[in-house]
């Protein structure tokens, strides 16, 4: 069984668990490092971004309650999130995220319709990264401002209020509850308008660009902050790289790991990230390692142990297929 097949199975199993298994009484808790949306009725776990914004267990929490039971629960949730991220790193995005699977299916539909995938220019990528940072800062700052009384209380859970997953995932399960314009006040109206427009743009974007939302997903950015402690990681032997560009072509977020690197790691940040396999947009799908046709140039490592090394025969077997995504 190939890594690709394992990933497909993992994605579908987790999609079912995280979307429907709450109806069976299963709950994986509020610390999941993937977009398991709590607004889906019957979901089996909750994305940690929600907890992070929550006034009851996140940045909006009053410091006075930090050492109460609630504060300790919040710390435990954060600790669990860190452990989960440390274990599997960015692979949460590529192997478990339910919204990631939806995006993969959108890409498959595009391929079926023979529409060419959009290739983002460097400038477009830079703009998108700015949006990603804005979203991340927004979800970090607003809860604190609410606690300090400097922001309107209806801005609670600021990112969840505009996250496209909140609208799209319930719609996928047949629940249109969150598809409404809320006229209660200008805060809620603005949030609902932004949610709908943003969701529409993301739907279109994920059709034209594989894993489009991952480029702006703040969860991806949050996970990448813990890069130094990842156990599951991509490794690269720069000296062995021929610069063929296979890795970039099969990468859903178009990360170029085939840059002409030398053994000197004092390169630009982008290249060091590429060498370590920890670029901020990396999904941990390991498509690049599987399709690398240079022996030993790319590999997968868990802790100190190398569990996979790129090989010409393995890549040839996979690249025979029409579409890798």
């Amino acid at each position: 069984m190939t890594i690709r097949m394992l990933r497909l199975i993992s994605q579908h199993v987790f999609f079912f668990i995280l979307t429907f298994s709450g109806r069976l009484g299963i709950s994986l808790g509020p610390s999941l490092p993937c977009l398991s949306c709590p607004y889906v009725t019957g979901c089996g776990g909750v994305c940690y971004l929600r907890m992070l914004q929550s006034p009851m267990g996140g940045l909006g929490m009053n410091l006075a309650v930090l050492f109460t039971q609630r504060g300790l629960q919040a710390l435990a949730a954060f600790g669990l999130f860190v452990v989960l991220v440390a274990l599997f790193g960015q692979s949460w995005c590529g192997w478990t995220c339910p919204f990631g699977l939806l995006q993969d299916y959108a890409a498959r539909l595009r391929n079926k319709l023979r529409i060419r995938e959009a290739i983002l220019s460097d400038r477009a990528m830079f703009t998108i990264k700015i949006f990603k940072c804005i979203f991340f800062v927004y979800l970090l700052i607003i809860p604190v401002l609410i606690t300090l009384g400097l922001a309107h209380s209806d801005l609670t859970l600021p990112y969840c209020a505009i996250c496209p997953v909140k609208l799209i995932m319930p719609l996928i399960t047949g629940d249109p509850t969150y598809l409404n314009l809320d006229f209660t006040n200008s805060v809620l109206l603005t949030e609902s308008v932004v949610l709908i427009v943003f969701s529409g743009l993301v739907l279109v974007g994920m059709f034209f660009k594989t894993r489009f939302f991952c480029l702006i997903c703040p969860m991806s950015l949050l996970i990448s902050l813990f890069r130094p402690i990842f156990l599951l990681r991509l490794i690269k032997e720069p000296a062995a790289c021929l610069g063929c560009g296979n890795c970039r072509r099969v990468c859903p977020t178009t990360i170029d790991k085939s840059a002409p690197l030398s053994n000197d790691l004092k390169l630009s940040t982008k290249h060091i990230d590429a060498v370590r396999g920890f670029a901020k947009s990396c999904q941990g799908c390991f498509n690049c390692a599987q399709c690398c046709s240079t022996e030993g140039s790319l590999g997968i490592k868990f802790g100190p142990k190398v569990i996979f090394r790129a090989s010409r025969s393995y890549a040839a077997k996979l690249l025979k297929r029409k579409s890798f995504h």
């Binding site: 249109p176 598809l179 409404n180 314009l181 809320d182 006229f183 209660t184 809620l188 609902s192 308008v193 709908i196 427009v197 969701s199 529409g200 743009l201 739907l203 279109v204 974007g205 059709f207």
Partner: peptide, 24 residues
């Protein structure tokens, strides 16, 4: 009553459709 009292689902559906079609 908090949210969704003064809400419009029809308006939301139209806004969503228009956004998707225009963006596409």
């Amino acid at each position: 009553r908090n949210q969704a009292i003064h809400a419009s689902q029809k308006g939301a559906v139209w806004l969503f459709i228009v956004t998707v079609v225009l963006a596409f």
